[in-house]
Computed example of a mutant assay.
Amino acid sequence: MSFKHCLLAVSVAVMWGLNFLAIDFSLEQFPPFFLVALRFAVLALPALLFVPKPDVKFRWIVGYGLGFGLLQFLFLYWAMAAGMPAGLASLVLQASGPFTVLLGMTFLRERVRGSQMAFLLVAMAGLGVVGWQRLDSSASLLPFLLTLAGAFGWAIGNICNRQAHSVEPVKFTMWMSVVPPVPMLLLALLIEGPATIGQSLTTLMTPTGWLGLAGLAYTVIIATILGSGIWSWLMSRNPAGVVAPFSMLVPIVGMSAAWFVLGETVSLGEMCGAVLVIIGVLGAGMRAAKGPKILAEVVPTDVEDVADVPAGTR
């Protein structure tokens, strides 16, 4: 993975880390399931009307929309509405990194180095520590488990994204947004009810409403179109297990922003778990990146290079 690609991955992590604040503001105004439907409906309408379909198989658009779009945000927004702090959610959701590596091993036959697997086990141990800290009450454990379910949805989306090999990441992201709105709107009407949805729409001109709209705008434009577009571009050009661990930079931004803006704090045990997760997944990402680099050094790029490669490495 080149230095330029690394910088792009870091920029996406910053966009997504700040997005947890935007989601928190939006959930103060909108019920969670309706907010997911609204988030993607804002993207789906212009996609259907003005954006040509990307040149990828339709099943990967549906798979990405179901995993990255519907499952991830259904469970994440549900978790945050149920009491998951924004900063901690930004950490637990990054279990998508280890989940993506494991799914890549299982379904894409991607190779994982022994040292990389050791770091992934450290990351999973860190998540176990956070989960153990959440066991103090069933009310706090449920949001933790819901966020983990969202992380698994993100990992499914990563695998579909990787398989799509799209060279049109913005188009791919826009068309992915066509999948979640209808099922999420039906779920919102069934569970949250028309009255709750109607109230969230008729109170938009209040201060809370303006903050909710601003959060929604950030989520749609910055986090989804720009951030997910860059992420799709990176996924199409690098192994899923190399790109995915960069998402572990998200909680550094998310937890810092939540502390600074919302005054959120975490327990000492949760902080220790967070450190383990970040060390584990970043370490796994760096070990995964070394494999392609070493290969590039010993494998010739054209016929003329063959003569320069030592016999023992051919």
Rank of each mutant, 00 (worst) to 15 (best):
E168T: 11
P169F: 05
K171I: 03
K171E: 15
F172P: 08
T173V: 15
M176T: 14
V178Y: 03
V178S: 04
P180H: 00
P180K: 00
V182P: 14
P183T: 03
P183H: 12
L186W: 09
L189V: 07
L189A: 06
L189C: 11
L189H: 03
I191K: 13
T196W: 02
T196I: 05
Q199W: 09
S200K: 04
S200L: 09
S200P: 11
T202K: 12
T203W: 05
T203S: 14
L204D: 02
L204K: 06
M205L: 14
M205I: 04
P207T: 08
P207E: 13
W210V: 15
L213H: 06
A214T: 06
G215A: 07
G215T: 11
L216P: 01
L216H: 09
Y218T: 08
Y218A: 10
Y218L: 09
I222Q: 07
A223L: 12
T224D: 05
G229S: 07
G229L: 07
W231D: 00
W231A: 00
W231S: 08
S232I: 07
S232Q: 15
S236I: 03
R237K: 15
N238L: 13
A240P: 12
A240W: 09
V243F: 07
A244E: 09
A244G: 06
P245T: 08
P245C: 12
P245H: 11
F246W: 14
L249S: 03
V250R: 02
V250H: 02
V250M: 04
I252W: 01
V253T: 06
A257M: 11
A258K: 02
V261S: 07
V261D: 06
E264M: 11
E264A: 12
L268T: 09
G269W: 06
E270L: 01
